[in-house]
């Protein structure tokens, strides 16, 4: 069973800083990492490969440095990595991103056959969760989003059964292969990389494709040009109005607080009434 995992290199949003003068993100302030959800997707692919055979192929669209994220996947156990990298891909929104990735997957599918595509639930930077379902729609595959468990794979009958997280719990859903899953972090624990993988990853060079390496590409659907959405203004999220500060001794503060809360008296009374 050949599994393709689509992975993205992202800035670590835990440490990224906003430039207060320009209201833009200072990307240099944050190290680039493998999107955490995608690490779980690769881990799941490796787990499935160990059970059912085949190989794990990772694919990413991004600048040349994204090769580092692919190396990280090799550490987890991926067999092969492809990076599609071209100025013509730049500025893509999710529609244009899924188009470019689809074109690359189509080529890999032709060359070696793909039985399953995995994506992260979302990427921590753009954070839309729209790319996975977009790829699935273009490939004509059923998308199964928010997957928390792969219950079984029946390679003879080409069927997969997964658990999809929904608001009230989860649903058990069965789909023919090939299909596309987007995975939640709870699907697995990412194992520590075994030493041979680390050694292999350190030297690993992914295949790099430009637009010209893909077939039948409609240039108009790529990058900024192929993107229906554009990012308009950006600003740091804060409400500047500020609080009315309640000053004075602790006792004064408490009694003023009680006054404030008595504005919600009606609420307190009702709640107090049925709770007591």
């Amino acid at each position: 069973m050949n599994i393709l995992v689509s992975i993205k290199q992202v800035p670590d949003t835990k440490v990224i800083k906003v430039n207060p003068k320009t209201n833009t993100l200072d990307r240099s302030s944050a190290p680039a990492i493998l999107n955490p959800y995608d690490a779980h997707a690769v881990q799941e692919a490796v787990r499935l490969k160990q059970k059912h055979g085949g190989k794990v192929i990772v694919l990413s669209m991004g600048p040349p440095q994204a090769a580092n994220a692919i190396r990280k996947c090799v550490e987890i156990g991926a067999d092969e990595g492809y990076l599609i990298s071209d100025k013509k891909f730049a500025g893509a929104d999710t529609l244009a991103t899924s188009y470019a990735l689809y074109k690359a997957i189509e080529k890999l599918e032709k060359e070696q056959g793909i039985d399953l595509v995995l994506c992260g639930k979302h990427a921590i930077d753009g954070d839309t969760g729209q790319v996975g379902p977009g790829i699935a729609r273009r490939m004509g595959m059923p998308p199964l989003t928010n997957v928390i468990n792969v219950e079984s794979v029946d390679t003879d009958n080409k069927l997969i059964r997964v658990h999809r997280k929904i608001e009230e719990g989860h649903e058990v859903i069965e789909s023919p292969l090939p299909c596309l899953l987007t995975v939640e972090k709870t699907i697995n624990e990412v194992d520590y990389a075994p030493l041979p993988n680390m050694l292999r990853a350190a030297r690993y060079e992914p295949y790099v494709w430009s637009v010209d390496d893909l077939e039948d590409v409609d240039i108009k659907q790529l990058g900024l040009k192929g993107s229906p959405t554009i990012v308009g203004t950006m600003w740091p999220p804060e409400k500047s109005s500020g609080a009315e500060m309640i000053e004075g001794s602790t006792d004064e503060q408490v009694s003023r607080l009680l006054e404030v809360m008595s504005d919600t008296q009606e609420l307190l009374a009702v709640k107090g009434g049925d709770g007591a």
Binding site: D127, T229, G232
Partner: peptide
């Protein structure tokens, strides 16, 4: 909100 809530962005589809 995007980038882990670090920034707000207005998105347009013209």
């Amino acid at each position: 909100p995007a980038f882990g809530g670090n920034i707000m962005a207005t998105i347009l589809c013209k």
